[in-house]
Amino acid sequence: MQGWHSFIPTPVKTSYLNALLKAGFHTLDFGSFVSPKAIPQMADTKQVLTALDLRDTQTKLLAIIANRRGAEQAVGYDEITYLGFPFSVSPTFQQRNTNSTQEESLGTVADIQELCIKNKKQLVIYLSMGFGNPYGDVYSEEILLQWADKIAALDITIISLADTVGLATPEQISNALAALVPGYKTVEFGVHLHSSAANVHQKLQAAIASGCRRFDGALKGIGGCPMAQDDLIGNMPTETMISYFEAQGLKLHINRQALQHCIQLANEIFI
């Protein structure tokens, strides 16, 4: 929702998220504790959170934060399990997204990790621009692996490789995960992939074959990062991902009737 062109009313957000909570997903990225000036769509995250119905769901809530102040707000809510922080492999994007350098942001990650441990939360790090960037910043697989090493050294146990602007090739995905997954037995590596319809299956297969079992998606492929660039390749459609996973024989725990209701709501909201 964060980059949607018009503000989605709070009751509409809440209705959609409550529907998603019934679909059987492991985690729901429900909102962001970030500057309302930077991301106006997320200005009502606190109101949305208080209206979520968590009584009959196993789905855990994740909130995006971009600095310590946002983290301090998020850890105050018992309902939230995960805090997600975007750490960019691109120095230009790190400055653009969080108004800080990579080294400053690494210090912020360490501070937030300490805050999470004290408040019994779990920090998820997204290595954004993980497969290249549109700014001309130097990129290589070695650079990605170096930053992953630094993040893992802070005892972060969930790291998601984010293809923020859809540049990743299946080979890049395979190589990165093949290098990381065996080396860190206590870290769960996931992928946050953007793609066109033409290469979604190839990217998913590359990640599956490399041992990845944590995937981010969005119904209808809606979204992207509004801080990245104007012309984004969208998120991977959750419904496409589910169909592909099932075709590959992976066991899912999705309530199909509830999912269909979510898709119907998405068709009404995102028009």
Rank of each mutant, 00 (worst) to 15 (best):
M236C: 13
H261S: 00
I263C: 07
N235V: 03
H253K: 12
S243C: 05
Q260I: 12
C262V: 15
T238W: 04
Q248N: 07
L259E: 04
H253D: 15
P237S: 12
I254F: 02
E246N: 04
I254C: 07
L250E: 12
Q229M: 15
M236K: 07
L265C: 09
G234E: 05
S243D: 11
L232T: 11
Q257V: 12
G234T: 02
K251W: 00
F245S: 02
Y244H: 10
Q229D: 12
T238V: 14
R256C: 08
L259M: 13
G249P: 12
L232G: 11
T238F: 07
I233C: 12
Q260P: 11
T238S: 15
L259A: 06
F245V: 01
L265G: 08
L250Y: 09
M236E: 10
K251E: 15
S243G: 06
D231C: 08
Q257W: 00
Q260E: 15
A258M: 05
N235C: 08
P237G: 11
F245L: 11
H253E: 14
Q257A: 08
H261P: 01
A228D: 01
K251R: 12
C262D: 12
E246G: 01
L252P: 03
E246S: 03
Q260M: 14
H261K: 00
A258T: 04
N255C: 01
I263A: 02
T238I: 13
Q260K: 15
L259R: 02
Y244E: 02
E239Q: 15
A258H: 01
Y244K: 02
H253F: 12
D230T: 10
C262Q: 13
R256N: 14
H261I: 00
Q264D: 13
Q257C: 04
S243M: 08
L250D: 10
M241S: 05
Q264L: 05
M241D: 03
L250H: 09
N255W: 02
G249C: 09
Y244W: 08
I254P: 06
I242R: 00
E246C: 00
Q257Y: 05
L232V: 14
Q260D: 15
